[in-house]
Amino acid sequence: MNVNLKLMATKSVSFVFLAGVFLNVGAGNVFAQDAAASADFLTYEAQLHEQDTKYSKKVMKAVRESLGMAAKSVQLNSVIETMPKVQVMDHYLTSFGDKVKGNEVRRAVEDVFYIDLSYISKMDYGSKLAIYPNNVMESLRISFDEKATSTTKDADIMKLAKNEVMDRYIEVHDYSLTGAEARKLINQIFGVNLDGISTLEHSQLAINSKGQWILKSDTDLFILESSLDDIDVSVYATEYFEELTGSKQLPESLKSKLINMGFTYNESTELLYYKNPANESVPDAFKGQVLGTIVGTIITEYKN
């Protein structure tokens, strides 16, 4: 909603109130109309703010209440919208109570990050691993009434849908995971690093992974795209980059650094490509290096 419409709404409410003053005889009627008009205007203003907010009404309501504000207050909207997404997620999770189930964590991820973990699980996208990290495997073994050190059920565990792995882990831990612990688990199971994504929100780097956009804006300069199982990674320029520079050719500094990390460059497609020789999902450490290199290039060469 633009400023002009807001001003029109304000004037309309003021006009209704003034008309009431002149047309109603009793002072009680005047004050009643004043109160009604003011209440209507405040409600309308709240609706305007809600429509313009970065997050949905239920997320904004939950975060406000977590911060000790009234559910419909708009005073902290700008503060909430500039918070790191991980912080918003933590506040939002409090609305589910002391015990937070797996489906509620996944809902929080979708509502705050717009990433559908259930879709990743259903399509069996994401991390392709021979085995999950020890803490996950030990908890899942316990969920099958096995000893934490037993490997009897490991093959069965690795066949489970990612959502079920997540649900079993959270149940074993009595539904008491903190936001930070839940995000670590999500990265270990789904290969989605929410902490990293949160820090990259305004980096001008788009990320397409697990069959969906993880990060995207109209002013992104480069796109990092991974295969559905995260084994392959590609880096290329956006249309906005081409508009800005007059070319879709990647900068030589970025090409040189990523080639030294094992990428190959295709001149015809103007694309950098990497495939993990182990035929497993690219490790987090390598992802971090790649992301750091791209963001570093954006900061040093394209930021004012």
Rank of each mutant, 00 (worst) to 15 (best):
S256G: 09
E146G: 02
V63K: 00
H202V: 07
V13M: 15
V3I: 12
K287A: 09
L48P: 07
L250A: 04
Y273E: 07
I115M: 06
Q47T: 15
V235P: 05
N103V: 10
N208H: 15
Y265D: 02
I170F: 03
I170Q: 01
V30H: 07
T269S: 09
I115V: 07
F144A: 06
G68I: 00
D232W: 15
Q75K: 12
S66H: 05
N4G: 14
A70P: 03
V79A: 12
A9R: 06
L160R: 05
T219F: 15
A237E: 02
D230V: 10
R168I: 08
M123K: 11
Q87P: 11
M1W: 11
A36M: 10
I214S: 04
L200N: 00
V233P: 02
F263A: 04
D229C: 13
L177N: 03
Q47W: 15
Y119D: 12
E171L: 12
D195R: 06
G28D: 13
K184A: 14
I197T: 04
L221A: 04
F15M: 10
F15N: 11
D34I: 10
V30G: 02
I157T: 01
D218T: 10
K54W: 06
I231Y: 06
D156S: 07
A206S: 15
L250W: 05
K54G: 01
Y125P: 07
M166P: 08
F113I: 01
M166R: 10
E50H: 08
Y169D: 01
F222Y: 07
G296M: 04
A148Y: 11
G20P: 02
T82C: 12
T300D: 13
L194Y: 00
M69I: 04
D167Q: 00
L160G: 02
L291C: 14
I142S: 09
M123P: 06
Y132W: 09
G296D: 09
M137D: 03
F17K: 06
N266R: 10
A71L: 02
V136G: 05
K85Y: 08
H173C: 08
A62V: 01
D98R: 11
V86Y: 15
S38F: 13
S139I: 03
S118Y: 12
R107P: 08
K128L: 15
E301V: 07
S121M: 00
K54D: 04
L67H: 02
F222T: 00
P283A: 08
P251E: 05
A182H: 05
Y169L: 00
A182Q: 14
H202R: 11
S268W: 15
E267G: 12
Y125L: 11
F286V: 03
G296Y: 00
Q212C: 04
K275D: 06
K153V: 14
S95Y: 06
K216A: 09
D52P: 05
M60V: 02
K122H: 14
L215N: 03
M8R: 09
Q33I: 14
K162F: 00
V105K: 08
A161E: 14
E280D: 11
N29W: 08
P277N: 14
